[in-house]
């Protein structure tokens, strides 16, 4: 069912929704961008629908709402570890198809990997509902179509922002009541069907080939280009790694907090252990690890789909202009070359 409504009416509905939901959307933080006099667009709670930045891609994804950057796990004393709490408010999140598809990857990591669920993820994820935002023609770094993540039906509401009014599709029965007074129209959201950027995925079909991929010269090029800052992983909707640490409020009383913060496989200390041992010492090796996780490992493990959804934020955020889309295509070319060489070797024998 679709509705046409004014921004004023939508804001009244927003007020009603906010009795049960915290409503998050990509918002503008003026002057808070990486460079001076640039803006930061990231998720935050909104007070009015006009605050939603719908015509630009956000710098950060909505994952921070259900997988907070810093999340207290326990408050501890000498006697007990008490689990941190969250309130009962639902989470209503304005999100794009790639992000909604990306959150399904997070679901896989937090809820399906291993034989147990991460209850901290679960308790926020269960409360989350999505308001799909149309992408229009998309942006120059997007490659969602190549990754098959340009479409989704996993949303409660969908919205099209027009200059003087909004079109809303209500897909989830639970939200129908908010729109009962509105004018009905035909509206279903449109999805991007092509991107300026196409990505060809590598088809690595043997461990012998994978070994050769590990040893490719192309990774070494990134030793000088990649600064290991981790901006790509922070921006990524599907990066799910974290580090747990303890914060001691009072050293003597051993009272404190156990919390987790996002971690990045691009950072030098990602694999570092107390004894000084670590792995993947070079930026190129770490970038290889990230690349294969996004376009090989995850699928090898969970079968259904690649981890990367092609949101392109890693490309947008890389201060060194390393394009992940380009890496994927280069890798595919190299894999094709390796396969050809292997088949020639066989033929030559």
């Amino acid at each position: 069912m679709g509705y046409s409504l004014s921004y004023g009416r939508m804001n009244e509905i927003l007020k009603e929704l906010q009795q049960n939901y915290r409503v998050y959307a990509p918002r503008r933080w003026a002057g808070r961008g990486r460079y001076s006099d640039t803006d930061l667009i990231r998720y935050g709670e909104i007070a009015a629908v006009e605050e939603v930045v719908h015509d630009e891609k956000s710098d950060f994804s909505p994952k921070e709402i259900i997988f907070p950057i810093t999340q207290p796990l326990f408050y501890f004393t000498e006697d007990e570890y008490r689990e941190s709490r969250v309130d009962d408010q639902g989470l209503l999140i304005f999100a794009r198809p790639c992000d909604i598809n990306g959150i399904r990857r997070l679901d896989t990591m937090f809820l399906k990997n291993g034989d147990s669920e991460d209850s901290y993820y679960r308790r926020l994820r269960d409360k989350a509902r999505f308001v799909l935002m149309e992408c229009g023609t998309g942006w120059d770094t997007c490659f969602c179509v190549s990754m098959g993540s340009n479409r989704t039906s996993d949303y409660s509401l969908a919205v099209r922002f027009l200059p003087d009014h909004l079109l809303v599709e209500v897909r989830d029965e639970a939200f129908k009541r908010y729109f009962s007074q509105e004018r009905e129209v035909e509206f279903t959201p449109e999805f991007v069907t092509s991107n300026p950027r196409t990505v060809r995925l590598p088809e690595i079909d043997s461990s012998g080939l994978l070994r050769k991929v590990y040893d490719l010269e192309m990774w070494k090029e990134y030793n000088s280009r990649c600064q290991s800052c981790g901006a790509c992983t922070a921006a990524c909707i599907t990066c799910s790694c974290f580090t747990t640490s303890d914060l001691i409020y009072n050293e003597n009383a051993r009272v404190g907090e156990r919390r987790r913060v996002w971690a990045s496989c691009l950072h030098e200390d990602f694999t570092a252990m107390a004894g000084g041992l670590g792995f993947r010492a070079t930026p190129g090796e770490r970038l290889r690890f990230r690349t294969l996780h996004k376009v090989y490992d995850y699928k090898a493990r969970f079968k259904e789909e690649q981890m990367c959804v092609g949101c392109g934020r890693c490309d947008d955020r890389c201060p060194e202009f390393i394009s992940f889309a380009t890496i994927i295509n280069r890798l595919s070319d190299e894999v094709e070359r390796l396969k050809k060489e292997a088949s020639q070797e066989v033929a030559g024998q």
Partner: peptide, 16 residues
């Protein structure tokens, strides 16, 4: 290195 030991934190991953 591990933070969780239950397949969530990602630190100990090698290949898949």
């Amino acid at each position: 290195r591990m933070s969780c030991a239950v397949g969530k934190c990602g630190h100990c991953k090698i290949n898949e």
